[in-house]
Design a protein around this nucleic acid. Sequence first.
RNA 1: GCGGGCGUGGCGGAAUGGCAGACGCUGCGGACUUAAACUCCGUUGGGGCAACCCGUGCGGGUUCGACUCCCGCCGCCCGCACCA
Length: 834
Amino acid sequence: MRLREYAVTDITDQIQTGYDPAVIEPKWRARWQESAIYKAANHSDKPNWMSLTMYPYPSGVLHVGHWFAFSIPDVFARAQRMRGYNVMYPMGFDSFGLPAENAAIKHNIHPAKWTYENIDEMSRQFDLMGAMIDWDRKVVTCDPEYYKWNQWFFLKMLEKGLAYRAGGSVWWCPNDQTVLANEQVIDGNICERCGAEVYKRDLEQWYLRITDYAEELLEGLDGLDWPERVKTMQRNWIGRSEGARLSFALENGESLEVFTTRPDTVFGATFMVIAPEHPLVARITTDEQRAEVDAYAQKARTKTEIERQSTDASRQKSGVFTGAYAINPVNDARIPIWIADYVLMTYGTGAIMAVPSGDTRDFEFARQFDLPIIPTVQPEDQPLLDGATMTEAYHGDGIVVNSGPFDGLRQSEALPKMIEWLGEQGRGTAEISWRLRDWLISRQRYWGTPIPIVYCDTCGMVPVPEDQLPVVLPLDAEFKPTGQSPLITHESFVNTTCPQCGGSARRETDTMDTFMDSSWYWFRYASPNYEDGPFDREAAEQWNPVALYCGGIEHAILHLLYARFFTKVVRDLGMIDVEEPFSRLRNQGMILSEDGRKMSKSRGRQIGPDELVAAYGADALRLHLMFLGPWEQGGPWNDRGITGMERFIRRAYTVVSELGTSASGTVTGSDAERSLIALQHRTIKRATDQIDTFGFNTMVSALIEYVNEVMKLKETDIITSPVWREAVETLVLLMAPSTPYVAEEMWEILGKPFSVHQQNWPVYDPALAVEASIEIPVQVNGKVRDRIVVASGASADEQLTAAKALEKIAAQIKGKQIVKEVSVPGRLVNIVVK
RNA sequence: GCGGGCGUGGCGGAAUGGCAGACGCUGCGGACUUAAACUCCGUUGGGGCAACCCGUGCGGGUUCGACUCCCGCCGCCCGCACCA
């Protein structure tokens, strides 16, 4: 209804220009739907190209940030289609998740109702945008037909030992009332979703063994055309460290295992540090030290992770001696064992050998508690290091000292030899340590996929058989946040029979992390209604790996790492032969509100596209979003420039409308014609190149410049030439991906058959792009003093001669000595004088 | 602390080592109009009447020529961060 309102105020305007988005946009939207031109067949004589964009959460309405994220990939998809690909631009909704549940609690509306209503509204807005979405492939993850396959994947992973249940210390969000995966905790202790402070709890939960694929997930990054930033973030997260595991004998007969990346410095290990939570602590602490150790361990437990890991300069190392000693395996030195909170139980073995001469943290600790320091690497060309006087640790290369048989070697040579030697002695082995932890997928919430497990009093934990899937999420549950899954109180869901013995049993009531849903959804697009599995292999092979994936940087680790993991699991299940899901990744920047802050719904800072579409049309809004700046950069929203885009469209529309039958003359081969052809081909090249490099802002510039030039020519004789017609047709074709509605309208005005979106992209011909003559600058001492017009293809000498003949140049060089003459054909002339 | 990115008019931004500020917005002047809006034309980095001079965060360097490359700073943003 809103769409109509604008016509009243701008009615005179339309009479003048004829361009009326309020009329043409609904017209073509209906036509596209009727003719189903955006349906992507799985098979075609053209190469397939899936242009995937991270599907949205159905939060309610699309704001301009969504348009930014979705309309620009649409431009790309449309261009790819015109360039000869069979393009699929699918869309779906990531529709399980907390906001639905929160809305339910707050507004007393069922999550399902809320979710499906939002999906309807957002689908409408996608259509408003003019996106070439093939809705027949829509994926909605809260549909039982979809989440059934989440459960199926879970069971397959269980069979393969990739899913397991285990107890442990896990992150708990008191606001969302659920546990979280490590990846969902940011800045040490903040919930990625809601921003609340999270803390650790000991709970038994379901995990997926993503660590089995750590090596492959790391190596696979090298071959991907992804932003370097994202790859770096994943590498950091996976955190591979090469080193060795060493075993230190204890005086009670046990041994203490440590992981170190610097086994070459083991001769400099003067004490050990173990995490306060380390299980050995209780057994090795001496009676005299016990009170102090217990007090420290207790204090460490209550500290938040962020406090413990803070590296503030003000913060000093703390720790307590256990009273126990370990034996350094290489020199039998008796060294004290301390506990300190700078050693984390969650990394390595939870214990370290401390080498204060080579590690900054150990150095600080040694100085703090007056522990000995023995240098093991002597930097070359520097005074001899002395443990008593060193002011900081040295971790560079140098000559090995104080290390028995290794003295005199270079540190870099000693490292592998030392590992080998330790191995021979049975005191250590080369080892690789990872920062990556297994993926915790249990959530104590309602609006998610039920985990298909049954607990039977006699059989224990029993997976729900495949043929009984899906385990349907009951719609009549009480979904209030209690810290337990709301399903617990749903008697008819919980109480079931054991699939093995038929006796009474209880269902698992936790649901899955919604990142499960998004870890394979794009496979589903290939065969969205397939019933014999998550996807039809043959169909999926037509579209995978995904040629282009667009989405926000915020998923650099979370979703993108999980999706890569799932792909490798799917491959190992023999379901499809794909190594990596997304060959090419591009991240859009974030559109902020006008005051530069995040466009959050709760703070009312969302800018809705409907009003803008009503006022300017979807085409103008699409152009405006393209033109804001580099797509990968984003920035604060403003609508100031949108009128410029509207003007551009009107000009194009005017040129097309006035073409008529004027261009029915013959080609004369005039300079004007040649010049227009050259302009046309240069513009084709610019537009084409800029699509490939995601330079959509400069692509729009190229189109605007083209229209502006063409507008000028409209007043000349050239409009009788067929060259003119071709130039105008090219304009419409080049505009088609960016402004799909008006391009379609203009194509019709030109008398061309439906649809402009099924035409071929104009082909650039370098030979035709050359102008007869060009203007180049003439510099004296690097400063532009004048310009000359030369025939294109003029030689360096010809340019120079012409330049010197210029009055201004002659004046500049008069009475001076020419030191050097630079003449670059087609670029410039520079005369250096003194 | 480590890693990455960025710094250009009033604003968004553009520039394979070759005319800095394309393109758009805004502003200013004009045409059209009874008037306004729309549209169209011109103009719009600073200084100067002009010739010219100064200008891409700061300081050096390489080069005939540097926003671009190199070295050293300053500032902002992002990621990682006691990971052994």
